[in-house]
Design a binder for these strands. Sequence first.
DNA 1: GACCGCATTGAAATCGATACCAGTTTTTGT
DNA 2: ACAAAAACTGGTATCGATTTCAATGCGGTC
Lengths: 329, 329
Amino acid sequence: MAKIKDVAELAGVSVSTVSRVLCNGPVSDKVRKRVEAAMAKLDYRPNLAARRLRSQHTDTIGLIVSDIRNPFFTAVSRAVEDEAYRNGMRVILCNTDESPEKEAMYLKLMREERVTGVILAPTRHSVAALDPESLGFPVVMIDRTPAQGDGDAVVLDNRRAAAQLVEHLLAAGYRDIGGLFGNTSSTGAERHAGFAEALTHAGLPSPARFVPPSVEAAEAAVTAWLAEPDRPRALLISNGIFLLGAVRAIKAAGLCLPQDLALAGFDNEVWTSLIDPGLTVIEQPVDEIGRSAMAMLLARLEDPARSHRHVVLQGKLVARGSSAPLRQR
Amino acid sequence: MAKIKDVAELAGVSVSTVSRVLCNGPVSDKVRKRVEAAMAKLDYRPNLAARRLRSQHTDTIGLIVSDIRNPFFTAVSRAVEDEAYRNGMRVILCNTDESPEKEAMYLKLMREERVTGVILAPTRHSVAALDPESLGFPVVMIDRTPAQGDGDAVVLDNRRAAAQLVEHLLAAGYRDIGGLFGNTSSTGAERHAGFAEALTHAGLPSPARFVPPSVEAAEAAVTAWLAEPDRPRALLISNGIFLLGAVRAIKAAGLCLPQDLALAGFDNEVWTSLIDPGLTVIEQPVDEIGRSAMAMLLARLEDPARSHRHVVLQGKLVARGSSAPLRQR
DNA sequence: GACCGCATTGAAATCGATACCAGTTTTTGT
DNA sequence: ACAAAAACTGGTATCGATTTCAATGCGGTC
């Protein structure tokens, strides 16, 4: 593949001049045209590795999530990538599967890549232990965040959202409300907090169960729970993955929504509106989360000294049939 | 950030020796330990840009798809990434949105990155015009492929799969079968071919419509079609995105599956089993597609001279209630 | 006509690693 | 114990670009 020296020779100029053409430096029109002709003729493309080495900026950001197949992260990723490419940056995507080891490995990789910055959905482990300062690049956390509130982050108002769901269920007349939460992320803990708070405030118990982040785990937990004699009358499900497992369990148990059981959860995935009678969910502003995270990262790069901030976005309650008001009998 | 020279000085050896430690070259245990201690002390991480420039291999592959939010591509991407990282390679992900311009831009970018190879779901435009030889890196196509069969590719047996769905519908007693296909990919064309062939073979007409690749377009097309007096009695839908639009249109029209309309489509997305009465679909072996594509790329890199090949995978018919046998009346 | 300033251009250093070659030490064989 | 082979180590060129600094040419001014 042609390199800058070949272009320079063909155009009869020095490599410096070709470089200037590349970077819109000061070059006379006549020379610029000659150089551009030579570049076209050789089908020249600059070598990004060389450019990055010399210029010391990689224009690359890392995006570390638990699993791109989780539609929430899929949507966020797409928004991040669009925003990144729009700003002339590239994205390296990594899936941790909630494993702290994988996460640590990918963070190391990020250092080797000399990334400009990282957008990270931290595992529960790292959210506590991670020192963003020591990493050598700025980090914006998404979805999950350390409680004490340092560092940059874009998150949902998880407590409020969970409380909103509880209030919605209470208003619909339900009293025995159970909650299913993830045991690996701070998100699950926060949603549980909002859930428990709202029920306690109403003078009700707040039975909760915690499971690892997989459809199967959620399905098994809900199946077991529904088989118990004093099973809840309504369930709050902490994310879209669990929701899928919950619906499977409910179908398998032959229960009807909402007559036998009310259901409300997180993540407005496409199918939640399609299954009868429609699932009540909190919709997260996924595009906005991705865009904000990227914007935040760019702002931090612009001004490394600016104070850390948390952007807390509100979810939107989408009420559907699965939480229809309890009929009096 | 520390560089190799710093490590060398701290360890009291030459940079060459440090480099050898890095690359598992021949180094005495004593020196290796000293160097490793120095690396640990300095928290040294090699600069990948420098390494790539010098070694002339980037260990990076490009993955170019239309939209990562399409669950088919999500799943394939994840498989590709896992396989790539397992082989010490990195992945650059790009979304073309079926735009030939974006695709061309990303292919240019791939050249600048000096990628080792590319896995590409080509737009209809490039599937015809693309000359993989001229790109400077090997390409494995997925999902879509040029008809004439040159180049490496991993695809579904689309004709057969579509024919299978048609045969399934015929066996269930349906006769007026319509098909909805994408107008931007070769996949749509092939599935249409299989669809038309199977119906023609049965002596039946094969009414088909073609739409751009979006949920909205599919929804609008199906809504319009269902409003016509001689609307089909069964629909074959060419992919998971369209299937979503179709289900929305059917629900909006107040039609019941399968009494009012039978439905069969592609892509066994999670929700297809959840909505009543379950959607009949062709399941694509998404993990296998991703893994095979990566394996194929690695094999091609190993032996650039080996003959091109197409891996054609069979889909699996998953029969559900949406295509239940037509009751006699 | 000498001098200054501006706009261009080129030469050479540099980014941080690896590759190659040569030199030195250690091991092995007899 | 000596020669030959093997193992290890260091110096330097190099990858392909950008960056810095110096040189050149040209026009205008006094």
